[in-house]
Amino acid sequence: MLALLRRLGAMVLTLVVSSFVIFAGMYAAPGDPLTFLIKNPEDRTPDRVAAVRAEYHLDDSFLQQYLSWAKDVLHGDLGTSFVYKQPVADLMGTRLPITLTLVAMAALMFIVIGVGLGIVSALKRGSAVDSSITGVTTFLTSIPNFVVALVLVSVFAVQLRWFEVSGDGEGFAGRLYHLTLPSIALAIGALAVVSRVTRQTMVEQQSLEHVDVARSFGLSSRKIIWRHVLRNSLGPVVTMCGLIIASMLAGTVVIESVFGLSGVGSMLVDSINAHDFPVVQAILLFMVVAYMTVTIVVDVLYPLIDPRTRERSEAA
């Protein structure tokens, strides 16, 4: 319990520092926000300029601006976009479901397929199947994910026309269909790592004493795999999956750009190119929070899955 509180405390501290760094970064960026806020130079009358500066707090000191931004964020107000002139929270609200669905589908894919391949690899250790799985997955990880995305688009969508690549679809089923290729592209990079870690953990587990003991008792192979090997392998595997999901948020930036999805990742790229700093700030902050949330969830889950660590930490 105490450990959890300490962990939360550290997270809050990290969050505050990160938000400060993000805000400072945008503040330091060159370029006068006024050129974006009032596009037509003929409109930059002294009155209008003063009004806009007051509205966006451009005359306050750095610390004041940071604090007012932080306060707004805690109240759910993420600022107003320079480009769209709409609340950033609204803009993100429509785009977030797409990114989250994408990550969820990719996570499902790489967990199911990755862990599955890892198990098969471990059970058939040393065989041709083992070699091919490891070989193919390792090669796939080495291909940059944007190349994978481009190949998927051209082969499956363009040549074979099995899939559509038109942003997001209508309704639930439509959306799943449209996000299939992008989630494959996102998941492919993670497959190798997940299957390898699964394989290695299971191999380690299989060589432990209690497995031999179980075997000598005459327990069937399948029961051994399930009860002893797999369950004990869950710990490291879950941690790995958690870390991958956390870093997948950054991966959405590339995938969404290639597939033209209007998610949070592509909005980040667009707003950087357009110097739309309120949006950049908000998205970066969101990704940091998401990353930390996932890592904390994994940390919390680990003792639940693997009681041994819980005992160890309680004893410590």
Binding site: G126, S132, T134, G135, V136, T138, F139, I143
Partner: peptide, 29 residues
């Protein structure tokens, strides 16, 4: 991934994937 067989697997995987990708490329050119 610290065994000798790692490199064999990589090479096998590499060969297959390269062939697939080349096929896609040539098909499109």
């Amino acid at each position: 991934m610290s065994t000798v067989s790692a490199r064999r697997r990589l090479a096998a995987g590499a060969a297959v994937c390269a062939i697939v990708a080349l096929a896609a490329a040539c098909g499109g050119a």
